[in-house]
Design a protein around this nucleic acid. Structure first.
Lengths: 362, 362
DNA sequence: CGCCTTCGAGTAAGCGCTTACGCAAGCGCT
DNA sequence: AGCGCTTGCGTAAGCGCTTACTCGAAGGCG
């Protein structure tokens, strides 16, 4: 056996099998050309030697690395100090489930993933972006890791797909149908539960998802002659802590509660509920609260959270598939893929939680 | 600007800067040779063109991909059905925090990570392993993704470091000091809380960590003339569900509780506590329960969990650093790196939770 | 029975970089 | 002034693969 510092090459295999390197390559790549007998000899030599072709050489020669980079934001969960909500770990859920979807899709194409996370507060350093770009065939960007301008610049060099972002001239974007989901939710709050004032507890101000949802709240409210509350005071940053903070600030400042609070995501809804309870308000008796995403935890809280289910994992697979076809040289027929969402009525909006879990009586 | 399908090369940059490709390469790699003036010209051309060198070509030429693969097990959290403990998402915590450590260390060396997860129930398919091996300079394996035999085979081809596994002839392993941690914990239970029977609620039977901890429980108990309970009936699989299952089976089968239950990790301790409460047992009044790892949640449960803190993130960085030096051609001076752990006394073993969080009175 | 096609397999030309080697120019020394 | 050094840069040889091109053998046909 060869030592690992004197790595095997295709020549070693060819020699051992008594064929040319071209044949070895053809066998390894599943071409039809070599006849069974030759193929057998090569396969045997490969097995005996334990040969693994060098990815860099393959990539250089075939102009395909079979690698895509995924960049996402990550809570630098510094366990020790801040009063962590037990559910805060769920923060990961949204991005994680999406990444799972990406991974599943990637595996189908024999691609591997270069994962790179950015602290929530930082931007992606250019050097790191270049490093990733050089090592991959395309890049998948989660929400808010790069400015639109930077995305355009990047997308001019290699395929780029964004998740829950905005499409650009050169990149494709994958989102849940925020407008429809939020519209239906708000309509429900108004028509069924008779809400007359509805606040939108937003995510990050620069998050396209949050912006779209805010817009839907505003428009739907307006269409029904209902008051919509939005703005900096209602910025929850997508986190449970952020959601709780908004509520506490409001109440500490002597503000009055709206009839309903539509939160930008489940995370912040959980935080809001927590803070409201803390001050003695009942949900849904005193105020209706809704989320967005339908994270697993949403059905287990009390009351169970009314929310809009996004097909998170599918968004991941759709994003990879879109990127893959761009890598494959096809130009995308749409700049944006919008996936359908589903209104999920549970207890927190005042609906009886009878069919909350989607299953019958057990 | 060039179209993306006709990618830029170092020749384009050289031409534009009026120098040779060698100079461009030297500038890009931070060599000292080119003088400031030349360097400036090159840098300018690079910036104007938006040139990003091809990773595959660099890797092939320099014999360094600057990529390591990380393989870990992942709960295929299928949200919908099983009665998920709220904390089950924390399952991710251990591996995730370690991966964070790896990422931090990798970044320092300008390495990127090829992340690949395996379902808890599967093994890593050979094809996937080969794909990863071909695309990286070395591999980091979490617990139980490969059999020891497979690890040896792999480690003969390229550097391999395992996390919480066992060292092999060719691979290095990084672990917390299971023996010391568990010994001190059991000693504490015996000497301070007077436990006369101690059960070890294990993790997976083939997990080296679990085996080491079991051994420590057994030996320490024996040394003190205390009864240790172990075996298949006490196998909790590291999960909250598993921990709860063990307790329920025990009680349903009419078994009697030991004085103390030392769990293989915090996860399963949480599950055990949950199931014990369910049946009306108080912790620590009726039975002492302890964990291992000190996940963030451990301090927030009631009672707060007595456990052994592992330096999880450092284990990740240590693993990467070890792998890096192997990639660098150095042969490791030790086959195993053991990181120190720390006994953390909280309420669940009967200690007053006065200094539970490590902070003074607030 | 010879010619043209088909097919398996080998030869060699890159893929886009890094770097050993070599050359020319500039320097200090005798 | 002549010598050998150093220094800055260009030339060209790979790195380990894939694949276009080529060639010989085998088979189908008139």
């Amino acid at each position: 056996m060869k030592a690992k510092d004197q790595a095997l090459t295709i020549y070693d295999v060819a020699q051992r099998a008594g064929v040319s390197i071209a044949s070895v390559s053809r066998v390894l790549n599943g071409h039809t050309t070599p006849r069974p007998e030759t193929r057998e000899r090569v396969l045997q030599a490969v097995a005996e030697l334990g040969f693994v072709p060098d990815g860099a050489a393959r990539a250089l020669s075939s102009r395909l690395k079979e690698v895509v980079a995924v960049v996402y934001r990550q809570m630098w969960l510094d366990s020790a100090d801040e009063p962590v909500f037990e559910s805060e770990a769920e923060n990961l859920a949204f991005v994680d489930v999406m990444n799972r979807g990406i991974e599943v899709a990637a595996r189908r194409r024999n691609f591997d993933l270069l994962m790179s996370s950015v602290d929530v507060h930082d931007h992606l350093p250019v050097a790191r972006l270049h490093s990733l770009a050089g090592k991959s065939d395309g890049i998948l960007l989660h929400d808010r890791v790069l400015t639109p301008a930077a995305i355009v610049r990047l997308a001019d060099r290699l395929p780029v797909v964004t998740l829950a972002g905005t499409p650009t001239r050169a990149s494709v974007n994958v989102v849940g149908d925020n407008a429809t989901g939020m519209r239906e939710l708000v309509q429900h709050l108004i028509e069924v539960h008779d809400a007359r004032t509805i606040a939108f507890l937003s995510g990050h101000a620069d998050s396209p998802d949050s912006v779209m949802r805010a817009k839907a709240v505003q428009e739907t409210a307006a269409a029904h002659g209902v008051t919509a509350l939005l703005g900096p005071a209602w910025e929850g940053e997508y986190s449970a802590n952020g959601g709780a903070r908004v509520i506490r600030n409001l109440l500490d400042g002597g503000g009055t509660l709206p009839d309903a609070i539509a939160c930008a995501n489940d995370q912040s809804a959980l935080g809001a509920v927590y803070a409201l309870r803390e001050r003695g308000y009942g949900i849904p008796e005193d105020v209706l609260v809704t989320g967005f995403d339908d994270i697993p935890l949403a059905r287990h809280t009390s009351p169970p959270l009314t929310t809009v289910r996004q097909p998170v994992q599918q968004m991941g697979t759709a994003a990879f598939d879109a990127l893959y076809s761009m890598i494959d040289g096809k130009k995308p027929e749409q700049r944006q893929l919008t996936l359908p969402v589903e209104l999920v009525l549970r207890g927190s909006c005042g609906c009886v939680p009878q069919n909350a879990g989607g299953r019958g009586l057990s």
